[in-house]
């Protein structure tokens, strides 16, 4: 079957999709967006967390056909997503960060062209905080954690530790013991708070 969706602001179309395929498979193997990770395929690890019409979900448990016509945000689009959000929040004050033509900006091309390594695009606050706090080791859980944490901070800019733990309780990490991940989310919240 054919599936159409908007991912990270760009329209995509996938053909010859087997009906049993998940959104995760389509993203990774058909749309060239392997950032979302496949670690369990049963909704027990959160590594494939994406935003589906704004809601964090395990992409491995969304049938490809269910994503038809939906808006998906993956880790690859997180920086843009955060930038647009902060643009919206600060829109009245500082209009028009020159987004047009910027690599990775939605709408500039209909053909997906992943940012090449070496091109330095600004990171979302939560991405930068994960690097700075040492929350990344093997990094396999990182994309899912980032999408989840970013959504938490969108909903709750000043979460308590218990709130962070609850929000991230569906994202397994095997390397870090989570301490530095907590640090990272606290750091991202603090930085975002300062910036506002």
């Amino acid at each position: 079957m054919r599936v159409n969706m908007t991912v990270n602001g760009r329209p995509y179309e996938a053909d010859d999709v087997w009906e049993g395929e998940s959104l995760l498979y389509v993203l990774r193997e058909r749309l060239g967006l392997p950032g979302s990770k496949n670690a369990c395929e049963q909704g027990e690890c959160g590594s494939c967390t994406v935003r589906l019409d704004g809601v964090p979900v395990c992409a491995c448990l969304v049938a490809a056909g269910q994503a038809e016509g939906s808006e998906v945000v993956t880790v690859e689009g997180l920086a843009d997503h955060a930038r647009q959000r902060s643009g919206e929040a600060a829109g009245a004050v500082c209009p028009g960060e020159p987004e047009e033509g910027h690599p990775g900006t939605p709408g500039t091309t209909r053909h997906p062209e992943p940012t090449r390594p070496g091109q330095v695009a600004p990171l979302a606050p939560v991405q930068q905080a994960f690097i700075d706090a040492g929350a990344v080791q093997c990094g396999f859980c990182t994309p899912g954690l980032l999408v989840t944490a970013d959504e938490l901070l969108e909903r709750n800019p000043d979460p308590s530790d218990a709130d962070i733990r609850e929000a991230l309780s569906g994202n397994l990490c095997r390397c870090t013991g989570y301490e530095k991940i907590l640090d990272a989310v606290r750091l991202a919240a603090a930085r975002t708070g300062e910036a506002v």
Binding site: G20, S22, E41, Q42, C58, C60, L61, V62, A63
Partner: peptide, 20 residues
């Protein structure tokens, strides 16, 4: 999909039709 997709992903089930 939190039950059905697990069964499909793990090859426990191959329904003829999925009714979304």
């Amino acid at each position: 999909g939190t039950d059905v997709m697990v069964e499909i992903n793990f090859d426990h089930r191959r329904p003829e039709y999925l009714l979304d």
